[in-house]
Amino acid sequence: MLRDIPTVKMTSKSTEKWRVPDNTRLIWVSWDDEFILFHSQAGKTHYLNQVGAVLLQELETNTYSVSELAKKLEKRLGLDISEEFVKRIESLLARFDHLGLVSKHSPLSN
């Protein structure tokens, strides 16, 4: 396990910023460590584990890069962050992007 985030090779992916689009309304319900999410705009329901849910909840409140998200998850869930875990975050973001739950955030859009 690598705990040191800066040792993760910085790619263009890791510097990209992500967030839940402003016009997206997510409704949450959770039992234990399992989360169910209703995406109002798409009318779709998603089942998430804790990692997916925390990641999305962070992106509802702010804009983050992959490495920033990794640090958030490390802090909130006490996870050891490895290169493999960072790849998992990237993969999750790609999936969420496909579902319309998150989008890449361009600083120019501010």
Partner: peptide, 11 residues
């Protein structure tokens, strides 16, 4: 049954 599972099955 876990509630999350019951939710998904009912939905």
């Amino acid at each position: 049954m876990p509630k999350s599972q019951a939710f998904l099955m009912a939905a």
